[in-house]
Nucleic acid binder design. Structure first.
Lengths: 212, 212
DNA sequence: GTCGGATTGTGTACGTCGTTCACATCACGC
DNA sequence: GCGTGATGTGAACGACGTACACAATCCGAC
């Protein structure tokens, strides 16, 4: 990862500076959220002068957006992985509901395990129009938003969710888990005990399950 | 408000510097969220040297927290006001449900009307333990969290919400509307049309109403 | 009244940040 | 093999948060 990043390189050209900067930004975001991404520090760990960054990013915000995309991809991975581990019961209806819960749980687990990356992934403004951009997908090639959408489709197919309630249902489910995540890691619910957070998570998923 | 703040004062002592700094910070937060609060600028509009701020706040973060409290109070006012304007139908059950919707709608209206203040109010880390602190209350003396809690109590009294589901129900309702607010003003749902946001808001309130 | 300490504001300074401009170095296609 | 565009450098500017020593003022004890 940082094999030839930190030691002062011999070549004039870096070779893969853009990636190196994103990786450095990623590490900072992981430790302290999007606000902790500092451009000069990224160039420093890449062993390059501060201005070199401007050959690859218009400004600090552009670097943040790139890091945000990587973080979203990682969130997608966590979600896919959780889905893959889910045993199938045989009944499509209960399976679909379990899968929706799993997606929500994975989202909130990611928020709590990697709060810095979570905020970097989902708290950096960018229109929905670009939420499908492939740079935000995980290894599976799907973005978190697409994963959620697919599970909601399963719910419709299984006859659990009435088709007329399907449109934009992503926004409802997403809002609920996202809100709890933000309140817990970066808002007034900061400092709640792990036990209380976990029980609240399940209750929240109950609510979505009933109310969607 | 800024009557004797901007013109260079004659007295050595400012007189009410703390308030002046919070007011200046409030204005900045309104325009650009918590990140836009800059300590030096606040002292500048207060007509005072940069370090004077440190007599009233330990650091920039302390100023932010103070501004956050004021913003929370304003959110509380919006919520109380919306509740006060609600006509009573006579039926306690439908009234209670309407009041919960009204609280949610007010929260989201505040988020969209004053995104900077919204983020300053609810996106600055602080434990729940202090969410009842009176400096965050509105003119009514209640904090947003308390207002929501009271409406949920009404739901139980009216027989709409089973008592066993009442504990911590604040977190569920709050998470939902908070999540939508954050996603819309500061996340991947940024740029959704007003129409779509409003319809999504109603659907979200439907979901909470059904699922709580 | 006055005097001494606690409050409150000032001046100067340091290190860091994002960003700009002119310039240096390199890779590659004609 | 040469020049043109891409990439990295150096020095600099104006912010910012914050620390330290010092000055002005207020207030209560005598």
């Amino acid at each position: 990862m940082s094999e030839q990043a930190v030691r002062s390189r011999s070549t004039y050209r870096h070779g893969d500076l853009r990636r190196a900067l994103v990786e450095a930004g990623f590490a900072m975001a992981r430790a302290g959220g999007p606000g902790a991404i500092v451009l000069r520090e990224a160039t420093r760990t890449a062993g390059v002068s501060p201005n070199a960054a401007y050959r690859h990013f218009a400004d600090r915000n552009a670097l943040m957006l790139a890091v945000s995309g990587v973080a979203q991809g990682l969130a997608a991975d966590v979600m896919e992985q959780t889905l893959a581990q889910l045993p199938a019961s045989g009944d499509p209806a209960t399976d679909a509901r379990a899968r929706l819960r799993a997606v929500g749980r994975a989202y909130l687990r990611f928020a709590r395990d990697e709060p810095g990356l979570f905020r970097t992934a989902f708290s950096v403004p960018e229109d929905m129009a670009r939420a499908f951009a492939p740079d935000k997908a995980g290894e599976s090639g799907r973005t978190p938003f697409q994963i959620l959408g697919a599970v909601l489709d399963e719910l419709v197919e299984a006859g659990v969710l009435p088709p007329e309630r399907r449109p934009n249902a992503e926004f409802l489910a997403w809002s609920s888990v996202h809100g709890l995540g933000m309140l817990v890691i970066d808002g007034p619910l900061y400092g709640l005990t792990d036990d209380l957070i976990e029980r609240t998570t399940e209750h929240l998923l109950d609510m979505v399950d009933r109310g969607l």
